[in-house]
Design a protein around this nucleic acid. Structure first.
Lengths: 208, 208
DNA sequence: ATATTTATGTACCTAATGGTAAATAAATAT
DNA sequence: ATATTTATTTACCATTAGGTACATAAATAT
């Protein structure tokens, strides 16, 4: 268990030999590897090399490959992808979508990032051994799609989305475009190209 | 068993021991494995089991894993995905897109098929060892995107696409929707759900 | 000073990976 | 009948996969 991490534990000194690496920085390194290689494509050799630690330290700190992926994924959602949940707070459905997709482009086109969203590309067509992670990523995607649906229902009530529009269908459309853009980014699409996709996708957004 | 392979060889008899399996049926079995598992996720054990042959026979007949994938991919394009090239022949740009996306749904939602397009999902976020295949799939996707662009340019000349529309941007949009639908299919989307995506995506198609 | 606790380093484990050597079997050519 | 050609079978190869045992190092508690 962690010794000095929380503010509550500030006074107490760590009991054993101190960790030689920073827990969160290591997680960020692991994230980069999983993000670019996917769950299956990320080998423990590549992970330990990126983290600058050896295997037993990794296992002691993070459990195993699967657990490490989950922890990296949590960090991904609280960090690089936090904008997605934020976008739901925009005042109108149109602004929600525009903000979500535009900020997605910034993430996808950032040359410092691996290309494509990790939640989308992390485990798609893969071996049996990755099935649990694949299912987990599916439920994350569906979770966001459901959140968008709810947001659009609210928008319909609020009046900024016509009553005859189908919130679930619109949410599915938006996530589909986002997922397609991840594939495009993985294929090398530029920021401008991705932005043009957003523009085209938004052209038919229903007006109130 | 067919000892005689090509029409040109019709008269001559096969020289050595005849193959105990059908070449093209085996390729179809390999296709199914690669299609559902991706290049990286398909192991030789799973492949040989699916083909019902042992390793040396597979290597003698198809080269190696990479070559087998290429041959399965070629068969995929001439078979299940032949509709994509066909769709380009539709009379108007709108019909091209509608046909392409609708037929894609039939492929993606067919319960007999692995879920998602193999060209899209076959190798996205993967290890170093799959990089060549990943690049190859990228160029297939770009190839179709380029073909769509050309078709839209032609449509603009023909007058069934407004002159101020950008053929490349529209083609990118269409392929993005298709790629997103592959992810949706992989996440378990139904035929009806996929069709609703097509309907939403087509709503903003420019009219002549 | 000593015991206790925790982390690191080395070295190793088993299973699975893609790939192949060599013997054997089944066909045709002469 | 025999030689030649090609395919199958069995058994194996080196490498890598994810994961761990065990001794040692570095800190605190008493």
């Amino acid at each position: 268990m962690d010794t000095v991490k929380t503010i509550a534990d500030k006074g107490t000194k760590a009991r054993g030999r101190p960790r030689a690496f920073n827990h969160d920085e290591a997680l960020d390194s692991a994230l980069k590897v999983f993000w670019s290689r996917g769950y299956e494509g990320a080998s423990l050799n590549e992970l330990t090399a990126a983290l600058g630690i050896n295997r037993p330290s990794l296992y002691a700190a993070f459990g195993n490959k699967e657990e490490l992926f989950r922890k990296a994924l949590a960090r991904y959602m609280q960090g690089p992808v936090a904008y997605a949940a934020e976008a739901l707070k925009e005042p109108t459905a149109r602004q929600v979508v525009e903000t979500f997709l535009t900020k997605s482009v910034e993430l996808l086109a950032n040359p410092d990032n691996p290309s494509g969203c990790m939640i989308v590309l992390g485990a798609l067509a893969c071996g049996e051994g990755s099935e649990i992670i694949r299912q987990e990523l599916i439920s994350r995607r569906m979770g966001y799609q459901a959140a968008l649906t709810q947001r659009f229902e609210q928008a319909r009530t609020a009046g900024d989305l016509p009553a005859d529009e189908n919130p679930a269908a619109l949410a599915r459309y938006v996530t589909t475009v986002h997922q397609g853009m991840s594939v495009q980014a993985n294929s090398g699409a530029s920021r401008e190209e991705l932005l043009s996709i957003v523009a085209t996708a938004m052209k038919n957004w229903p007006s109130a």
